[in-house]
C-alpha cells in the first residue's frame, strides 16, 4: 500500500516556482502542509465538493501558472459534476490529484463509493480529461507526478492509499489569512 504522506511529499518535492496548489478539506490539507507549508498553497477546511471548481477559476485567471488540486475521494465525489465542467472547459494548466483511500477518513472510515464501484479516473476520462493515471504501488507515483505536473491538462491522477489515520499536520485555519498569504505570494511573483 502507498503511504499518502510519502506520496504527496514525492509529488511536491522540488516543486516548480509556478505551481499553485489547492488542497481539499481533511487529510489532503494535512498532507500538503506536511510536504511544505508554503505561501503558494491554498488550504480548504470546508467547502466540500468545491476544490476542483476552485482550481478551474484559478487556472483560468492565471494561464502562466500550473494549478494542482490535491483532494480526497470523498471531496471529489461530492463535486463529481465539476469533472464535467472541467472537461468541457479543458484548461491546459489544471491537474487534479485524488488521494483515494476508498473511505471517509475524517468521519470514522466509512467505505466510500470508490471502495465499491466508482472509478474516478474513468469518470474524468469520460468527462473529456486529456489523460488520467492511477498509482496502486509506490513505484507508480513517479509517473503520476509527471502527469499532474507536466502533461497538458486537464489531467487527473489517482493515488490509491491506505485508509489508516496519520498524525494531523495543521496549517493556518483562518481563511482570510490563507487568502491574503496566497494572493500576496502571487503578486510578488508577477
Amino acid at each position: 500500500m502507498i503511504g499518502r504522506r510519502e506520496a504527496i511529499a514525492e509529488v511536491l518535492k522540488d516543486r516548480p516556482d509556478n505551481l499553485l496548489v489547492i488542497s481539499g478539506l481533511g487529510s489532503p490539507t494535512y498532507d500538503v502542509a506536511a510536504a511544505g507549508d508554503v505561501a503558494q498553497n491554498f488550504y480548504l477546511w470546508g467547502a466540500m465538493g468545491g476544490a476542483a471548481a476552485m482550481g478551474l477559476g484559478l487556472a483560468q485567471a492565471r494561464s502562466d501558472a500550473r494549478v494542482l488540486v490535491v483532494t480526497g475521494d470523498g471531496e471529489m465525489l461530492m463535486g463529481l459534476g465539476s469533472l464535467a465542467t472541467l472537461g468541457a472547459k479543458a484548461p491546459a494548466n489544471l491537474a487534479i490529484l485524488v488521494i483515494d483511500n476508498e473511505a471517509f477518513g475524517e468521519t470514522g472510515g466509512q467505505t466510500s463509493h470508490t471502495g465499491k464501484t466508482t472509478n474516478l479516473a474513468a469518470v474524468a476520462l469520460a468527462c473529456g480529461f486529456r489523460q488520467v493515471a492511477t498509482a496502486h504501488k509506490q513505484a507508480d507515483v513517479a509517473s503520476v507526478k509527471q502527469l499532474v505536473l507536466e502533461e497538458r491538462g486537464p489531467v487527473l491522477g489517482v493515488i490509491k492509499t491506505a485508509s489508516d489515520e496519520l498524525p494531523r499536520v495543521l496549517p493556518e485555519r483562518d481563511g482570510h489569512i490563507i487568502r491574503n498569504t496566497f494572493k500576496t505570494a502571487l503578486t510578488n511573483q508577477q
Partner: peptide, 26 residues
C-alpha cells in the same frame, strides 16, 4: 470574458473564489 457553464450552482461559488485568488473579477 471567460464563460463557464456549470452542472450545479455551487461550482460557480468555488470557481469565482478561485478566479479572485488569481486576480480576476467574476
Amino acid at each position: 470574458i471567460d464563460c463557464t457553464v456549470l452542472t450545479t450552482e455551487e461550482e460557480g461559488v468555488a470557481l469565482l473564489a478561485g478566479a479572485e485568488l488569481g486576480g480576476q473579477r467574476g
